[in-house]
Design a binder for these strands. Structure first.
Length: 492
RNA sequence: GGCGCGGUACCCAAGUGGUAAGGGAGAGGUCUGCAAAACCUUUAUGCGCCGGUUCGAUCCCGGCCCGCGCCUCCA
């Protein structure tokens, strides 16, 4: 089965296959490391993660490059405010970003590259463009791309260059430019400001330049797929295409993948709306990393996702159901052999799952296929109709599901712990949910002791005392479940 | 103003020209000292409104209403 994906450039679903028949080369725009990542950022990175995991599932090896933008206006401004050079300002946010990716089970790209480590490649690109009369230097030392040199400008975002100046807010003070739409390749800077001494003068790169230079460096002048948030389509990606294709004369990326912005409580996320959340905010409120991941990937990437706390609660319950089913299957003692119905249920679920993903990464439908397996599997289990090979087949389907969704395997403790430690180190303990703090004050041994105490009371049929202990632990975020095989407890 | 997306049960959310997946929540049941958990069952004669095409439309076409996004730093 081959993956068909919507291609912004062609405007239709296209099969995604490596042009060289071997490895799919993809570039995904990464973060600008000037602050902690928010859930909007992560929806995009998560959907790119789904893409690369799905490609692997379909047997397509991937070479995935992601940039870290470690020099830009906001970084320079924030670093200046903090009184440090940008090289001292950005590493902690880059580190936090990578930690957050780990928390969300986002696979690392094969190659991570930083803008500041590719200044010479960028300068070289400007020189190539200048050689083709597609770039020019103004008196103040800035370099601009000459839009007139690239008639195809607008082909990605379907914008008509002529109509664009109407209504668009264009900086009319930039009188030096040939055209107000010409974009900056290189910004001249003074001695005291962040900059590099180069053959094209002292300065720093414009934003778009880094992606073209680094994509070509690691993937070649022409490659398979380029990904990013929908906001990047214009002008960022359009400008990348213009400068890259003008320089090389070759098609830059064949396939363009854009992830739609999410809404939070029905509005665009913004600090002024009070609906702006970083991943860390949510972890500290005691939402599990897996639930955040599932909430952010359950709505297909081209649809607007309305992120809410209710949605997070729903995702938490949904994951519990999946995990319970998996452990029920593993624990069941079953007769050897298989049944036609059991194997068919597994095969059918897998087929629907793969077909849904192959159809433009329809994660909602893919998820539904797995929940049908859960229901049918539970029914067969209850009826005693399941045999060991049926179980094995179903577990294998769950593995296939989790190779893309990555929510059944329970790795939730580490992200929460990391977040709480981070809060402690940054004087943000007041932002940590009380039960999270409370739960971390009791060791496992202490909890076990309390549970044992309660068991004793129960054996003596002193239920009043038993309930007291249960309530007490509940207030500390410890949940008890009395089962057939004893008492299980878990931290909320 | 230009470009684009969406309005499906209490909430979230797929989907198809032939009569509505899935998840959550609620209700009922099984189990239990109680509870929780778990499992099962159940919940839209209808898919924003009005026309049209069709044997038949939630799905196609036109109009309208509402919500949202991009066009500017932004994932």
């Amino acid at each position: 089965m081959n993956l068909r994906l919507f291609n912004t450039l062609s405007g239709q679903l296209d099969e995604v296959l490596p042009a060289d028949g071997a490895v799919l080369r993809m570039y995904a725009c990464g973060p600008t490391v000037y602050d902690y990542g928010h859930i909007g950022n992560f929806r995009t990175f998560l959907q790119v993660d789904i893409l690369r995991r799905a490609l692997r599932l379909f047997g397509v090896p991937v070479r995935h490059v992601m940039n870290i933008t470690d020099v830009d206006d906001k970084i320079i401004r924030n670093a200046a405010a903090a009184g440090v050079p940008i090289a001292e300002y950005t590493p902690k946010f880059e580190q936090a970003f990578l930690e957050d990716l780990d928390s969300l089970a986002v696979e690392r790209p094969e190659i991570l590259t930083r803008a500041t480590q590719h200044i010479s490649e960028m300068v070289h690109l400007v020189e190539r463009l200048a050689g083709k009369n597609a770039a020019y230097r103004t008196e103040d030392g800035n370099w601009y791309f000459r839009l007139k040199a690239f008639p195809e400008y607008g082909k990605l975002s379907k914008k008509d260059l002529e109509g664009m100046t109407d209504g668009a807010r264009v900086d009319v003070d930039e009188y030096e430019r040939d055209s107000a739409r010409d974009f900056a390749l290189w910004k001249a800077t003074n001695a005291g400001e962040t900059g590099w001494e180069t053959a094209i003068g002292r300065g720093r790169p414009g934003w778009h330049l880094e992606c073209s230079a680094m994509a070509m460096e690691y993937l070649g002048e022409s490659f398979d797929l380029h990904a990013g948030g929908e906001d990047l389509m214009f002008p960022h990606h359009e400008n990348e295409i213009a400068q890259s294709e003008s320089a090389t004369g070759k098609m830059f990326a064949r396939h363009w993948f854009h992830v739609r912005f999410l809404l939070v409580n029905g509005r665009k996320m913004s600090k002024s709306e009070g609906n702006f959340f970083t991943l860390r905010d949510l972890l500290l409120r005691s939402y599990k990393a897996s639930a955040i991941r599932l909430a952010l990937i359950s709505v297909p990437y081209r649809h607007q996702l309305n992120f809410t706390f209710d949605g997070l609660v729903e995702a938490t319950s949904a994951i519990d159901r999946l995990r319970t089913f998996a452990s029920r299957l593993r624990a069941a003692s079953l007769e050897d052999g298989s049944t036609a119905a059991g194997l068919a249920t597994a095969a059918c679920a897998q087929e629907s799952f793969l077909a849904a993903l192959a159809n433009d990464l329809n994660t909602a439908e893919a998820r539904a296929a797995i929940f049908e397996l859960v229901r049918d599997g539970n029914i067969a289990l209850d009826a005693g109709r399941l045999r060991s090979e049926d179980r094995d087949a179903m577990l294998r389907v769950l593995d296939v599901f989790d190779s893309v969704f990555a929510v059944i395997a329970d790795n939730d403790a580490a992200p929460t712990k990391t977040a709480v430690e981070w809060a402690r180190a940054h004087g943000k303990l007041n932002e940590v949910a009380p039960e999270l703090l409370a739960a971390s004050t009791l060791t496992d041994a202490e909890i076990d002791a309390r549970v044992e105490e309660r068991n004793l009371a129960r054996r003596q049929r002193n239920f009043r005392r038993a309930d007291e202990i249960r309530d007490e632990l509940a207030s500390l975020g410890i949940i008890l479940e009395d089962g057939r095989d004893g008492v299980r407890w878990k931290r909320k």
